[in-house]
């Protein structure tokens, strides 16, 4: 049951109408998303039971044709019809994980961090004024916020009103990409306005000494740390995908217990791999702030002085 959900729904949830995400599909008309629907007839303990169950839910045509004897040859046909009926945009086939669009999480994040390092370097050298530096990143965060917000509101409306358009996958894609831009730009925004940010806690909570650490840390070191964590996460995801392919349709019904164990293992590994970037982000904010403070003190006649003059 959980194995079937784990195969189809990317979140592993079985939601009722109108669904919780734009991927909601209800070809069966039972008010439950077909991607997260549990297997209806689990009596057949053969390896092809997953495909048969989904084909019964999606395409009654093949079942009527081969009602008496569902041979193994009919299974691929039914699975082909699954991809035709259930999710034409994603092209789900053979009961495997639907083809999610590749979200460029890591490249976009690295690109933005690299861009910030460049603009920060230009600012510290006096080539770029503080106002322009902030303006660039304020524009980027505005673009990210506006894009992410507008696409998010549109997605909510589409989900609530059960509107199915061809734009849904691309809308989700751009929502994710612009949200990555928003998150990274917001962290940079916090770094740019770190003095008012610290002042916020002082005003609201009376925290006067909001000092994290005075050790000068290199931004490069933090970036390398983030890269290492991200690359290890990518490596982990690729290894999980390779392991996940083993657990597809053939072994789902027979190996539910092993899947749950693997899920638990992946949970543990995921918490490790997920928590570390967040902490590294915090380190980026804090330590880079300290770095800039040190650079501004040492280069008092450098960038800022030039810009102000």
């Amino acid at each position: 049951m959980s194995g079937a959900c784990a195969l189809s729904c990317p979140y592993g949830i079985s939601c009722t109408a109108p669904g919780q995400c734009p991927r909601y599909v209800d070809a069966g008309g039972d008010g439950i998303c077909d991607l997260g629907q549990p297997t209806t007839s689990s009596s057949s303990a053969e390896s092809t039971s997953y495909d048969n169950d989904d084909s019964s839910a999606y395409t009654p045509l093949d079942q009527t044709d081969t009602s008496s004897s569902v041979s193994s040859e009919s299974v691929p046909n039914s699975s082909d019809n699954i991809s035709a009926v259930s999710d034409p945009g994603n092209g789900m086939d053979n009961g495997s994980i639907p083809d999610e669009p590749q979200y460029f999480t890591l490249p976009v994040s690295m690109l933005l961090i690299g861009l910030y390092l460049i603009t920060h370097f230009l600012f510290s050298k006096g080539i770029l004024s503080r106002q322009k530096h902030r303006r660039i990143w304020n524009l980027l965060i505005t673009a990210g916020m506006a894009g992410s917000g507008i696409t998010g509101i549109l997605l909510i409306l589409f989900i609530n009103l059960s509107i199915k358009t061809a734009l849904n996958p691309s809308l989700t894609f751009w929502h994710v990409e612009l949200s990555i831009l928003m998150v990274i730009a917001t962290i940079i925004h916090l770094h740019l306005y770190r003095k008012p940010f610290k002042n916020m806690f002082r005003v609201l909570f009376g925290v006067k000494n909001f000092k994290v650490s005075k050790k000068p840390a290199s931004i490069l070191a933090v970036v390398i740390l983030i890269t290492v964590v991200a690359v290890s996460g990518q490596y982990l995801s690729s290894s999980l995908d390779e392991g996940g392919k083993v657990n597809t349709a053939a072994n789902i019904t027979s190996n539910n217990t092993t899947n749950s164990n693997q899920d638990q293992d992946s949970q543990e590994t995921s918490t490790n791999s997920v928590q570390s970037p967040s902490t590294s982000d915090v380190q980026t904010y804090d330590t880079s702030g300290d770095l800039e403070e040190t650079t501004t003190t040492t280069k008092s006649g450098g960038g800022k002085g030039k810009n102000r003059s």
């Binding site: 729904c9 979140y11 919780q20 998010g152 996460g233 995908d241 992946s266 967040s278």
Partner: peptide
């Protein structure tokens, strides 16, 4: 943002957790 980022990472890693549903709800 944190919930969205977690969901994205979970999705890319193919991890299905029971907290995905409340995470998605509160993200929205």
């Amino acid at each position: 943002g944190g919930a969205g980022f977690l969901l994205l990472i979970f999705m890319e890693l193919g991890i299905k957790l029971p907290i995905n549903q409340p995470l998605l709800y509160w993200h929205v």
